[in-house]
Design a protein around this nucleic acid. Structure first.
Length: 887
RNA sequence: GGGCGAAUAGCUCAGCUGGGAGAGCAUCGGUCUUACAAACCGAGGGUCACAGGUUCGAGCCCUGUUUCGCCCACCA
């Protein structure tokens, strides 16, 4: 046996990770071939923002995708994992604007073209660093296909989609209230507004009724918008104000006569039952105004500053105006009271500025018809959402979907392909840049200055990245994709819209499965954010624990509900696991020096029960892991492999194998080497999707001719190739139980591991005698027994500690080991335990209804358990009596 | 207001179609046993939130309650 280890003493991830990633990438293992005959398996990456740096969410998301992709490759599929980044309109524009600000300039000074050039320049220099970070994680994307949503090809797809939807009347332009960010100076879709419960006030304002000395008191959360009131409303059935409908009030401060109207929308119970109507700055009021044909008076400019319609308050910022309006009303005795009030305030999801409902002309997608198809596709199972509970959320949103505002008043993004004619006022929407008005031919046209919502291009991602609108071989081969892996936070933003667009333009769903995973939180369950300072940087984790340990941790956590509370302790635990695997492999390699794997015979009749047992366990692990991955139960795959590796392989099999490996029978040694090699080889393949680096490193150190140059190309083991032997497994379980029983006594009695003891095994059958006889080497070594007797008719030692395993009574002579009183205590404890078992089964099986109605197999199983417990109890009680008789 | 989810060992969580409650960490006791002290061996620890119901049998199914969390929504 060699004393020269081929692997270093502890696993050191860094060099290994760097080395193998380069090899994989250079060798083209990640490349997808659209002309391959193999069955396709495609995943499109949720494109991270080009401004992004890798965070925990990305790490989880991409680890799971990589597990699936590597596994499918090993299953013999032609795998395409399509990578890329998103241009992230507002986010990227913000980054570059900040950069300009530090240079003492702004985008208006540089101009539109100059600004866009700067953004591209920024992307060249510092964008897309996340791609490099994904590589550190081990992501096996086909990097040669990397796409960017602003690429020429994808931009072409965007135009094609826009034009077709416009031509079909599914894209239109309308003047409505929209969500406006006064800081970003752009419209936002409903989804881009985040509602935050905030403590505010409910101001009660007095509006004098014209021609009387009466006042109407209105309650409002936004008193400054009174400048834009064009009515006050009451409920039609509200007796309190019955006679006032049709009259007018005089709007204070601006002294405007506005009508009192009646509308069902008013809730009589809330506030005073009188609502001020500000059509230009409130969504409800806008609707009321439409019903009553009231004018909308816009009192803000695009920055949220009061405009000329605000009279004396013109030029004041909205909160400044609020303070002044309140003060002035109070001075005039028109402020009735101020209540505390909590309400949900909408904020810009990018910059957290409070959004302003704002009247403007925007582009919309009419989503009704698209949503209908997207609903059907999930209802009839063409796309499956996993876990299924998310289907309901998906449907809820789809059923209540509102038209999608897609125009954004920023510069970075896909510019809307619409041109306005200055002569005839016509709109030209065109795939190619228009040079003349389609209506009148005039050259005096100018392009819409807005760009499209970033999610518009993201919605096309599954087919735009594959070359659409061209009909490409890639699309033919890989569309629809197999699975979309994403967090639930972008279910509506992205998944739902991909469904709509995929069905509309490809006539097929974009993916057959959607796997929705949890969001990563800190150890306290809080969302990680820079401002909270609770961010755990995935790259630091990789540095400290290694990418494999990190990936394994993420996979282990992947089953949990909606939150993953990441703690570094857990990652440290899986680092230990990686190290365990490393050392087990080191042991194997030390003992496989010069071993030739050719001619391994796993059906060799001479294999021991231990050999057959570990092969059976391996076979189970293979089946369970495969099924777990099919079902997207990543935690179960990880858990199965963890337990098999550590408990079955390391704790038992390696220990059991030492007898033959270190023994002097070359044939026996070779048999065990064969099993050891096979189990390790399969284990590495099984673990590879989860822990690609360490498994590759060990794989490359395996002796002999390897089945493939890299684990990336090694096939997933076929369970059928591993012989399963249930009978041998049962026999081995008895041996293990005996060993555990002896260890238990030793532990309970604090007998040090270094101390060898004597054991007498009184067997209840010749079968047990034979099984234990063959395993006596294992029993001696693992239970630290020097003198061992096994048989059916042995003399029971006079003074002995007793344990029972199956039909075997284990006697450990006490002389010099422990005292009788100690053993009496231990036995009594053991007896009490077994007695509760016996009683449990007596009661259960004694129940007539149970006997009558429970399935036969359950009954049989319970009867066997009862018999076993009864026998054990008898032996233990007899043993106790003997012990007491000695006193 | 509507919808969804969670509540299991000291902590973080598994528990897939109902068949005597599991893991990791932590705790306690014993160990450098020649792959691994990032390890080994052993032990203790739970009215599965609460109350009903269905069932021979419920952590799991049904009803209700409590506490937390998330999403959606136009109560000024």
């Amino acid at each position: 046996m060699s004393t020269e280890p081929q692997l270093s003493k502890g696993y050191e991830p860094h060099a290994v990770e760097r080395k193998w990633y380069q090899v994989w990438e250079a060798s083209g293992y990640f490349r997808a071939d659209e002309h391959s005959q193999k069955a396709p398996y495609a995943i499109v990456i949720p494109p991270p923002n080009v401004t992004g740096v890798l965070h925990m969410g990305h790490a989880l998301n991409n680890t799971l995708q990589d597990v699936l992709c590597r596994w499918q490759r090993m299953q013999g599929r032609e795998v395409l994992w399509m990578p890329g980044t998103d241009h992230a309109g507002i986010a990227t524009q913000n980054v570059v604007e900040k950069q300009l600000a530090t240079l003492g300039t702004d985008r208006h000074a540089v101009g539109r073209d100059g600004f866009i050039a700067r953004v591209w320049q920024w992307r060249e220099e510092s964008g897309g660093q996340i791609i490099q970070q994904l590589k550190r994680l081990g992501a096996s994307c086909d990097w040669q296909r990397e796409r960017f949503t602003m690429d020429e090809g994808l931009s072409k797809a965007v135009r094609e989609v826009f034009v077709r939807l416009y031509e079909e009347g599914l894209i239109y332009r309308a003047n409505r209230l929209i969500n406006w960010c006064p800081r970003c100076h752009t419209a936002l879709s409903d989804l881009e507004v985040e509602h935050d419960e905030k403590k505010g006030h409910l101001w009660h304002l007095r509006y004098p009724v014209t021609g009387s000395d009466r006042y109407l008191v209105v309650a409002t959360t936004r008193p400054e918008t009174m400048l834009g009131d064009t009515a006050v409303a009451v409920h039609p059935d509200d007796e309190r104000y019955a006679g006032l409908v049709g009259k007018t009030v005089s709007l204070p401060l601006v002294e405007r006569e506005i009508p009192i109207i009646a509308d069902e929308y008013v809730d009589r119970e809330f506030g005073t039952g009188v609502v001020k109507i500000t059509p230009a700055h409130d969504f409800n009021d806008f609707e009321v105004a439409r019903r009553h044909d009231l004018p909308a008076l816009n009192i803000f400019d695009e920055s949220g500053v009061v405009n000329e319609n605000g009279g004396p308050y013109a030029g004041q910022e909205r909160y400044e105006a609020r303070a002044n309006v309140i003060a002035d009303l109070e001075n005039r005795g028109l402020l009735a009271k101020i209540d505390d009030h909590q309400n949900a305030v909408g904020e810009c999801y990018r910059c957290r500025t409070v959004i302003e409902p704002y009247l403007s002309l925007q582009w919309y997608v009419k989503v009704g018809p698209l949503a209908e198809q997207a609903i059907k596709a999930v209802q009839d199972g063409r796309t499956r959402i996993v876990p299924a509970q998310w289907e309901k959320t998906y449907f809820e949103w789809m059923f209540n979907i509102q038209d999608w505002c897609i125009s954004r008043q920023i510069w970075w993004g896909h510019r809307i392909p619409a041109w306005y004619c200055e002569d005839c006022g016509g709109i030209t929407v065109s795939r190619a840049d228009a040079v003349a008005c389609a209506d009148c031919g005039s050259a005096a046209i100018r392009q819409d200055s807005d760009v499209l919502d970033t999610w518009f291009s993201s919605a096309l991602w599954p087919f735009s990245t594959m070359g659409w609108p061209e009909r490409t071989a890639t699309l033919d081969k890989f569309y629809p994709t197999a699975c979309l892996v994403t967090g639930f936070d972008i279910l509506f933003f992205w998944v739902a819209r991909m469904m709509m667009m995929g069905l509309k333009f490809m006539d097929r769903v974009p993916f057959t499965d959607v796997y929705i995973h949890a969001l990563v939180r800190d150890a306290q369950g809080h969302k990680m954010s820079k401002s909270k300072g609770n961010v755990i940087d995935p790259l630091h984790v990789i540095d400290e624990y290694g990418a494999d340990a990190f990936r394994f941790t993420l996979a282990s956590f992947a089953a949990m509900g909606r939150d993953i509370k990441l703690s570094t302790e857990r990652i440290a635990g899986y680092k230990a696991f990686a190290n365990k695997l490393w050392n087990a492999s080191r042991f194997a390699l030390m003992n496989l020096e010069g071993f030739d794997p050719d001619g391994i015979d796993l059906d060799d009749p001479q294999l021991s029960d231990a050999d057959r047992w570990i092969l059976t366990r391996l076979s189970e692990a293979i089946v369970q892991t495969g099924q777990a991955l099919v079902d997207y139960r990543f935690n179960e795959a990880a858990g199965t492999l963890y337990a098999f590796t550590w408990n079955s392989f390391c704790d038992w099999y390696i220990e059991l194998s030492k007898e033959q490996l270190h023994g002097d029978d070359p044939a026996a040694r070779r048999r065990v080497q064969g099993v050891l090699f096979s189990v390790l080889e399969h284990l590495l393949r099984l673990l590879h999707p989860l822990m690609p680096f360490i498994t590759e490193e060990i794989w490359q150190a395996l002796p002999g001719r390897r089945p493939a140059a890299s684990l990336m190309l090694a096939s997933w083991p076929e369970p059928a190739a591993i012989p399963v032997d249930a009978a041998a497994t049962v026999r081995m379980e008895l041996v293990m139980e005996v060993i555990r029983a002896i260890r238990n006594v030793r532990g309970e009695m604090d007998v040090p591991p270094g101390r060898q003891i004597t054991a007498v095994l009184l067997c209840g059958s010749s079968a047990s005698t034979a099984v234990l006889g063959r395993a006596q080497g294992a029993i001696r070594a693992l239970a630290r027994v020097s003198e061992l007797q096994i048989g059916e008719h042995l003399v029971r030692p006079a003074q002995a500690a007793t344990q029972v395993a199956g039909d075997v009574e284990i006697c450990l002579p006490l002389a010099g080991l422990v005292d009788v009183a100690e053993e009496e205590k231990r036995l009594a404890k053991e007896i009490a335990k077994v007695r509760t078992d016996v009683e449990f089964f007596r009661k259960k099986l004694g129940n007539e209804k149970f006997a009558a109605r429970a399935p036969a197999e359950v009954l049989e199983k319970d009867r066997a358990k009862q018999a076993e417990a009864e026998e054990k109890l008898t032996i233990l009680e007899r043993s106790l009596e003997k012990l007491q008789g000695l006193k």
